[in-house]
Design a protein around this nucleic acid. Sequence first.
DNA 1: CTGAAAGCGCTTACAG
DNA 2: CTGAAAGCGCTTACAG
Lengths: 352, 352
Amino acid sequence: MAPSSVGIKDVAAEAGVSVATVSRVLNSHPSVSPASRARVLAAVEALGYRPNAVARSLRTDQTRTLGLVISDVLNPYFTELARSVEEAARALGYSVIIGNADERPELQDHHVRTLLDRRIDGLLVSPTDGGSPLMLDAARAGTTPMVFVDRWIPGLDVPVVRSDGRAAVRDLVAHLHGLGHRRLAIIAGPAATTTGSERVDAFRDALHEHGIALPDAYIGQGDFQAASGRRATERFLALPEPPDVVFAADNLMALGALDAIRAQGLRVPQDIGLAAFDDIPWFVHTDPPVTAIAQPTGDLGRAAVRALVDRIEGRSPRSVTLPARLVVRRSCGEPDPGTAGTESPSSERSNR
Amino acid sequence: MAPSSVGIKDVAAEAGVSVATVSRVLNSHPSVSPASRARVLAAVEALGYRPNAVARSLRTDQTRTLGLVISDVLNPYFTELARSVEEAARALGYSVIIGNADERPELQDHHVRTLLDRRIDGLLVSPTDGGSPLMLDAARAGTTPMVFVDRWIPGLDVPVVRSDGRAAVRDLVAHLHGLGHRRLAIIAGPAATTTGSERVDAFRDALHEHGIALPDAYIGQGDFQAASGRRATERFLALPEPPDVVFAADNLMALGALDAIRAQGLRVPQDIGLAAFDDIPWFVHTDPPVTAIAQPTGDLGRAAVRALVDRIEGRSPRSVTLPARLVVRRSCGEPDPGTAGTESPSSERSNR
DNA sequence: CTGAAAGCGCTTACAG
DNA sequence: CTGAAAGCGCTTACAG
């Protein structure tokens, strides 16, 4: 039954010691006699006592809690990131509170504010925009240790844990070029986000290496969510010269692109090719399987937690950049037989 | 710069009033003179003061926070549920802390315990098992208001918000029967979970109405995660008489089933049909599009929050059961032309 | 090894 | 309308 209204005083009374002694036992302070310890433990057990974390936090000024503000929970990439963050944090004795920004700066700020008010020990953020005043203030004040993950805000003294997709994008463009595609379009994320602008830049640069230009009409402005991918793709398809291939800067916009393509009764890759940034399990089973750039999501989450906890505990972590890699499937046309990068489903999901 | 170490005392000093007055202004207590209010507000602004939520919670004995323990974050169904829960909670002035059980009872208990220690105002749970001692204790003690969502634990005085899939399962079986399928198999969730057992029962009952039996060999034991769906399907395929159609009791096991089917080089629906409980955006684009039973996920989340907040505020909510519905696509064979239940992508995702 | 006491940052009767 | 003071449930020097 153990009514949770039991306090440390009740335990002290039951054990016949002072609350100080109870507290010491609970915090495994060395100087407690074995006898007292046993009595306290017995009382704790008997009463079903659980320390009030709120009171403890107020007193110790630490919550053993990390905040994680992600851009979009409906995005499997962030969901996987959140999972690995929670796991790594738990291993170090921290809880994590997740805030979902839904790609909306105001919602992001709402969560950051709430998290800060709760006095979390550290904050992991994947910023939805170029830096709201609140975010800039928080980062510059430095009161709460911060680390950026996936996306970041330039010019701030905050470690960044992310993956670099430049090489993979270059591989992708080489792959597309090899298949004979020349009209290549991209659905970009918001220019204010680092991943939004970087992926376009990397794409443009890679095209340039092949002597291909990236006309404005081939840059669709998306917001990393499905609906924007659909709209951008509709616009591409309405062009006098539609692209041969569309590269979606994240998996949700690729989903939207598939919606748009399907709505027009077109086929992938015969009528138009599709590739995506971020690889997810479903891409193996879409019609056709989608060629994608895979990030080492689990590693990113773990590295981010490590960096943040380093900061919290007074060490000075450095930024971490991990490589992404191209996974070729069939959505841009048949690759030459024997091309590397294809995979079996078992190898692909072995770590789930 | 507003160092966050500013406390209410600093504000009081700056405004030339007592901390009591500052507190009253912050909590919009009526009896404060306009002059004092203005001075306090100015001081708050000048110092960038933010109340310490930990201290406030300790004092008021409420955290304005809801806990949500879901079975698996990697499951898009729960992710969508979590999103709607957070949204509904936020509208009522509550934050929500999500705990991911990963379908593991110990992990579920870990999160429940942590949440209770943090003195959340209410707890929403989708139990991973039939009821751990901790969960039973918490529910019976009633110290923290609780509501079950999706799954529940029988015999407890805790409101349940869920969707009833019986009718939809019957529709599914009728659909399969109409297509000429007679050997129907199911990949079940853990028998200890309500959704695990209910879906098998509904399936068995529906088969019975058509004079079809459900042999043990056609019941694959899964755990709602992808790998188990793969294993169960491999076993089905190795049978002397493999089933015509496999019904996966959730979307992740359907993903696993697709993996297994693809690994054997078989085609859906020609070689074997597939249907799933839970509909997700990707099912429109898999090869082939997957026939699924859709739950009103957003409504469930909202209803769950409403019920929980009712409990917290002293009202007595009743349980809520919403219907699920069958969405026919092509993964079990071509439906007769003109059959209802098919849909366009736009109508389908109009609420995202 | 142990206990009395102060104090973490707030809120809220209570008295004026 | 306002302030002094108590107290939420803990932890932790301090003194013994």
